[in-house]
Simulated assay, not measured.
Amino acid sequence: MIGKIFPKSAGSFKNRIRYMFGCTKHDHEISGIRTIGFNTMSKDPLPGVLQGNEADLSEMIKEFDQVETLRRFSIDSDKPIKPVFHAMLSLRPGESLTTSQWRTAVQTYMADLGFDKTNQYVAVMHQDKDHQHVHIVANRIRLNDDFSMVKDSNERSISLDSVSGIEDRFNLSKAPKPKDTWGVSITHAELQASIRDNNLPLKHKMIAKIAGAIEATNQAQGDMFTFTRLLRKQKVYINLTLNEDGQPKGISFEFDGKHISGRQLKRSRLTWYKLTTQEGIHYDPETISELQDEIARTYSEEQERARTYHYEFIAVSGRRKKPIYVKFTAKDYDVQKMIQEILELLDAIFDALFKPQECRLKRNYIEFIPGTPLNIPEDEEFAL
């Protein structure tokens, strides 16, 4: 089982409740909806919804929304709050629970997170082919004398522990802990984009590269220097944040021009502390200066490789010369192949139109190395 808590929100419960009862578009197919439990005065809106009538649904939404209004009238406070809580409990494909078991699981989960009988809630099960999952929408405002709020500190950790207990109770397969897996959540939009473009999102691509470097470093019994060099081979570069003592306190990774901190990538494994303790990447504080030099060498070596070649092709038709400039970065043996392909392309495109008498490649080229002045030969035909 996997437990996921969605971002909390302010305002009405309308969108969340309509979503869970199938009244708005879903990003997955739903073959069945079942109400698991609720504690509102309004009745179960599902029968009406299935018949196209949302009257009971509107009553439930109104009842949820009224609690914040009551709190605002009773408590003189302008402090913004986010009462809308939305979570999902999801089983692995092939596993299932009865309605009674799901109700027990939901009540256990909510109690562990600090909700009680004074908190409104509604839970609905979606059957997606062979995949059961339950959406829970609850009001964090308690219907008591002081309209207190359910606290959300450490709720992610509490959620993991609660799910583990539910798995044990119903003999469900155990979901791996975040620290034991490189898996990260991916939004539906990111998934669709990766399918369309045949490419994974940048964040997931970075994690895959870093995970491979960690494994290779451990196999080689290497250290932070080894880790840095292995990452560099995959064009992933390290940036360190130092504390007042000049020692690393944070780490970020750069790939394809994008910087993401280890905490944002995967807090349970890729922070500086986790890398040097949990992941076993050895670091000697006495080597910070040498490590900084190694990290800095990343950029100078990358610039050395990133040579830009400017080639000029001249198509001559009568007295008119038509220059075509091609700029690209490649190793020398790749350059020759590319030149041949470009010549063939130019011949195919321009032969019928211009009937060039001469199409030749200049023997010279302009080589640009980032960080150095551009040295252009004094040749009119070569001028850019």
Results as ranks from 00 to 15, higher is better:
S12D: 09
F13S: 05
K14M: 05
R18Y: 01
K25A: 12
I30S: 09
I33A: 02
R34L: 13
G37L: 14
F38D: 06
F38I: 01
T40S: 09
M41G: 02
D44C: 09
P47T: 12
G48C: 13
L50D: 02
A55Y: 04
M60I: 02
E63Y: 07
E68H: 08
R72Y: 10
S74R: 15
D78M: 13
L91D: 03
R92S: 09
T98D: 01
T98Y: 00
V106C: 12
A111D: 07
G114Q: 00
G114E: 02
V134H: 04
A138C: 06
A138L: 12
N139K: 05
N144Q: 13
D146G: 05
D146Q: 11
S148A: 04
S148E: 10
K151W: 05
I158K: 13
R169C: 03
K174V: 08
K179D: 08
G183W: 14
Q192L: 15
A193H: 08
P201W: 13
K209T: 01
I210C: 04
A211I: 04
A211L: 10
A216Y: 08
G222R: 01
F225K: 03
T226K: 01
L230D: 07
L231M: 14
R232V: 04
N243T: 04
G246R: 05
I251A: 10
F253K: 00
T271K: 10
W272H: 03
I295G: 03
T298S: 14
E301R: 12
Q303A: 15
T308I: 15
H310N: 07
I314F: 09
V316C: 13
R320A: 13
R320G: 03
R320L: 14
I324P: 00
K337V: 07
M338R: 11
E341M: 14
E341S: 11
L343Y: 03
I349G: 03
F354P: 00
F354T: 05
E358L: 15
C359E: 11
R360S: 09
L361R: 10
I369L: 15
I369P: 00
T372R: 14
T372L: 15
D379T: 04
E380Y: 01
F382C: 06
L384T: 01
